[in-house]
């Protein structure tokens, strides 16, 4: 296939951002996502964009706030501890209803942890790591192709709903090179009448997250946000059900762990064991309805994560019978093993 190129996940994500019209990138280096800023530094000047290495993660997220308030398509990226530092800014961005794309190429934690890939930031990503009543859309790619495709989607979703879209990858996805067909721009255009573009000839716009009067101002905003989040929940759940129709057992996973689960499904199917995979593509909104459907007739559900159990809470909340939800996870940069998944599924018996 002649249109395929071999590309590293982090770089595919960077190129996809440029394809999507991102012209501003602000960030601060941290492994294992350094190829994102390196790529943006090299490529953005070619397309008339601006790359700036900020003095810190906190500075970078506030530069994102500024560029977004001015109507730009803007992105920042970091890895787990760096994303923790950005949480204040993300809460402010939510309060100011600004669209932006943030990338977390997760590494092991807590603390500075290590630089190997991990999925320990599911809670932080889906529950809101910053203060206040807010949500962010969370996309969970599993391949280099999805690192690119979901990045293009992320910019449209951010502009459509005026929210942060978080791309939640991990160190393995950032570092892996695979075949990639570059995505095409969607061509969607979003009017931004709220943007700070110079008030000549119109009333000034205000972008702020400070609303001091509880009854007439802040609750009003929170209700507006709530409506928006309900609309996102209703319209933007994404998932993939793989061989789930006749499955006795169901694996639930996302990102790198879902690749390993898929391999296990294929190998178990060769042995005649009916097992399927439910893979998240959005972690928030959580595709509860689709999961309920895929899980309905299964005897047992094995949630597989590169953490010691975070997504499992959403799985338990979603399925009718939470007693049948089991867990297998590795952490600290270790990967779940195909053989161990197979062993556990076989041990469930009939």
């Amino acid at each position: 296939m002649s249109d395929q190129i071999l590309m590293k996940g982090n770089e595919a994500l960077g190129e996809a951002a440029i394809i999507a019209g991102c012209r501003f990138y602000f960030g601060y280096p941290i492994t294992p996502q350094n190829e994102v800023p390196a790529y943006m530094a090299r490529r953005l000047p070619d397309v008339g964009g601006t790359f700036l290495q900020a003095e810190s993660e906190i500075a970078a997220i506030n530069m994102v706030y500024g560029a977004s308030a001015a109507g730009a398509r803007v992105m920042t990226s970091s890895s787990s501890p760096g994303i923790s530092l950005k949480q204040e800014g993300l809460s402010y961005i939510a309060g100011a209803e600004l669209p932006c794309v943030v990338v977390n190429i997760m590494r092991g934690g807590p603390g500075l942890g290590n630089i190997a890939g991990s999925q320990g930031d599911y809670f932080q990503s889906t529950r809101g790591g910053g203060n206040g009543d807010y949500r962010q859309l969370v996309l969970t790619p599993a391949t280099v192709q999805e690192m690119a495709d979901l990045t293009v989607l992320a910019f449209d979703l951010a502009d459509k709903y005026r929210v942060t879209v978080l791309i939640l990858g991990d160190g393995y996805l950032g570092q892996i090179s695979e075949a990639l067909t570059l995505p095409k721009p969607t061509g969607k255009v979003f009017d931004k009448p709220w943007a700070l573009t110079g008030a000549k000839g119109r009333k000034p716009n205000k972008v702020a997250s400070l609303r001091l009067v509880p009854e007439s101002s802040l609750e009003e905003l929170n209700l507006v946000l709530d409506e928006k989040y309900k609309s996102i929940s209703a319209n933007e759940c994404r998932s993939e059900s793989y061989l789930t129709d006749d499955a006795d057992y169901l694996l639930v996973a996302y990102g790198t762990s879902s690749r390993i689960c898929r391999e296990a499904v294929n190998e178990l199917r060769e042995e005649g064991i009916k097992v399927g995979l439910f893979r998240l593509i959005t972690a928030w909104p959580f595709p509860a309805e689709a999961l309920r459907k895929a899980a309905d007739k299964t005897k047992k559900i094995l949630t597989v994560e590169m953490s010691l159990g975070q997504m499992i809470e959403d799985v338990q909340l979603s399925v009718k019978d939470s007693d049948k939800v089991d867990f297998y996870g590795r952490s600290g940069g270790m990967l779940p093993e195909t053989d161990e998944i197979k062993r556990r599924i076989k041990a469930y018996g009939n």
């Binding site: 071999l6 290590n114 630089i115 570092q175 892996i176 090179s177 695979e178 075949a179």
Partner: peptide, 18 residues
Amino acid sequence: CIAAMNENKYVSHIPSYG
């Protein structure tokens, strides 16, 4: 990887790092 990819095989490459 590039050679095998062009022969329509699945490929992945990940460097050791850190």
